[in-house]
Simulated assay, not measured.
Amino acid sequence: MKIYKDFATYNQEIGLSRPLDNDIDVGYYDAPKIKIACEAVVVDFYRISIKIKYKRKSTPDVAPVSAVFFNTPNLIIEPGWDAEPDFTGMYLQLSKKIIEENRFLFKTYLDYGQHEALYLTDEEVEEVSAVFKLMMKYYESEKRNFNVLLSYVNVLVSLVEAFYKRQFSTDPKQYNHVVTDFQQSLIDYYNRPVQQLPNVQYFADQLGLTANYLGDIVKHFTQKSALENIHDFVIKKAKELLMENHQMNTTEVAYELGFEYPNYFSKFFKKQVGLSPKEFRQELIK
């Protein structure tokens, strides 16, 4: 499988314009000139691709869509793309270096490509197109101002955030099972002996999702982060053990829940409940 390490070799292979910079590349698709049949490939950089009125040859009865697609390093781009050569659109390519140096700008959406595209309404297409027009202005300028360019990248990512929230809300049935499966996985985790506290990555792996994607869906539907949901469940289990198993001391409760250090459990419990485990039990007696 071929791996493309930089924009220049990938663009040349696919039929895109030559990049003006090694860390950020912005351009428009010219569909008739793009290579649409090739083997599966991997790009060692990040891509945000907006395709407008995109239609696959293999599904002629399906209406064209406008959508945002994401590619990240190590994510395989399937062979053949299979596109009718009449779509339009734009792309933004970002090096791993620029992502690391400006991580605060990019939030979590770049790894969504492993799960789903973001489908755009006509109004959203207009908004994204307007931002890209401004990005191109500063990208093609001889006196490029990278701070301004990155600011527009941030605007684009913020729009993506808003549009994903709309997509989550438009078809909640598609996402509710993710929250349900996450909650059931929490229950299953504590239905057997545990040796450590669970984390978001553990449940993401169990569900075959990325941690960011799982966290964003859980946050959207529960109004709490995935980690906050885990903490709430751990506190619920802690209260049950303290109430129903009076023979267990605080240390035993801590180990039962997967805490490595009982002192950390006591601090965690007090921070969440406002009382130490011992004080909680005393209140129950009263």
Rank of each mutant, 00 (worst) to 15 (best):
R166T: 13
Q206E: 12
F182Y: 00
V194D: 01
L159G: 09
D205C: 09
Y213A: 00
Y213S: 06
D181S: 14
H231Y: 08
V234D: 03
K239T: 01
V155C: 07
F259I: 04
I217F: 03
E244Y: 13
F233V: 06
D205R: 07
D232Y: 02
P193F: 03
L197M: 06
S225Y: 05
Q174G: 09
A204H: 03
A226V: 06
G208V: 07
I217D: 03
N249P: 03
G208Y: 04
S151Y: 14
L227F: 09
F203R: 06
Y261S: 10
N176K: 10
F203N: 03
E256A: 14
H220A: 11
L207H: 02
F163Y: 06
H220E: 06
N191D: 09
F182Q: 02
S225I: 08
L209E: 02
Q206V: 07
G258K: 01
L207I: 04
V200D: 11
T222L: 04
L156Y: 05
E244N: 15
L156A: 07
H231D: 14
V218K: 02
A226T: 02
V157F: 09
N154L: 10
E244H: 13
E244A: 10
Y175H: 02
S151K: 10
D171Q: 13
Y255T: 14
Q167S: 11
L242P: 01
F259P: 06
K224Q: 13
K219W: 12
